[in-house]
Design a protein around this nucleic acid. Structure first.
Lengths: 214, 214
DNA sequence: TCATATATGGAACGTTCGTTCCAATCGAGG
DNA sequence: CCTCGATTGGAACGAACGTTCCATATATGA
């Protein structure tokens, strides 16, 4: 059952008028969550439909009816990731009051998020689909665009900081954003390779040394 | 035909006494080169044996006789990469006279190397096998170890710089190495995503701002 | 010259891949 | 109660996967 917040109160979404035919016996969000975690852990090509069927708890016919095919399922899974576990970066950048504080906290929180023990390690967007056979180029392009988008958000926060006079007027904003994006992605790889949270926090600390002096 | 340098002079390696049986009709190094480039471009799971057979120019039986199986072939390809296109980092760190100059030039050269137009983009070691199905865990572990090794080399160069008094005695050496390793890996991803050489050079420039002040 | 040893091309192997088909099931609308 | 429409589990599909087999070719050593 979906829920929605209105003025801080959780209410049930009005159930749509029941459609004709046999109703679905599975929870779409829950099934998608299983797919997300499996793709997150194993990558697109490392995940088979058989495994997905098992972990999502539904039959092939139901899966294909509900999600299309493997590529479309992956897209849905990525969207769920971006709106859930992958949404912290954007939130933090918007919440902090200076660009520097935003970036600093973003990296510190990333160190924790990327190493959470109860779920796949690293960022699903950062590392996925950098390689692949010829027929998954559409997915690769989509991931490239998602990474560009995430970098653009950093860039815009930094640019706002420059306008606010927090950073020197001659700051190379795109380069600074690219640099912190690179650190974030590199932290994802190290997390996958077994780095501990404190080690990544130290990386974040060192990286902040590259922040332009006022 | 293999060659070897002795006192700066290129000489032909003494051909081993011919073995019994029909001789190989292909050049092992050349075939391996084709495999390396294909794996580099598409990744392990994105590359099929059919494609390898085609690009290496030999039959399945010859391939399996010469290289074992797909996983062993990948290992051989990675070794060739590490000894060739992937060897610049270690060379530069050893050649430059200070740790800082070494790291600075390493990143600048990386910006050029990772975007060379006549070959696959990015670093083969940085991005490969961060995900995968269960049966390629040995390969994943090997790549994790290679990335750790490359980080260790940075770490040792920085530690030498600290001992030489180039950096503050209280420098967090492992964290500094991790941070530059992260930047390098992030640059690889951005290169894959289409970043131009100049953009990565700007990243390198910004990253050097994190170098500890003396 | 003939036995021996290795490499070759190409067919074929069993498995797994992503996907589709279909009869049975279940609920709503008339 | 019956019909319609969507969903279900499970069998089955053709294609592609990594790998092996085998008859043939080509070299060496005796």
């Amino acid at each position: 059952m979906q829920t929605v917040k209105i003025f801080g109160t959780i209410v049930m979404k009005a159930a749509e008028p029941r459609r004709r035919g046999r109703p679905s016996s599975f929870d779409r969000e829950q099934a998608l969550d299983g797919a997300m975690r499996l793709f997150w852990q194993r990558g697109y090509e490392g995940t088979s439909m058989d495994e997905l069927i098992r972990v999502m708890g539904l039959s092939p016919s139901s899966l294909y009816a509900a999600f299309g095919n493997k590529q479309q399922l992956y897209q849905a899974a990525i969207e769920r990731y971006a709106a859930g576990p992958g949404s912290f970066a954007e939130q933090i950048l918007a919440a902090e009051h200076t660009a520097r504080a935003g970036m600093e906290r973003l990296l510190q929180v990333a160190a924790a998020e990327l190493t959470k023990p109860d779920r796949p390690i690293g960022c699903m967007v950062a590392l996925a689909l950098t390689h692949g056979s010829a027929d998954i180029e559409p997915l690769q392009a989509m991931m490239t665009e998602r990474r560009a988008q995430s970098r653009r958000i950093m860039e815009e926060r930094i640019a706002a900081g420059v306008r606010a006079g927090e950073l020197p007027a001659d700051t190379d904003v795109p380069a600074l954003a690219r640099m912190f994006s690179a650190v974030f992605h590199g932290m994802s790889i190290q997390a996958r390779d077994g780095a501990r949270r404190e080690e990544l926090e130290a990386v974040a600390r060192v990286a902040m040394g590259a922040w332009p002096a006022r």
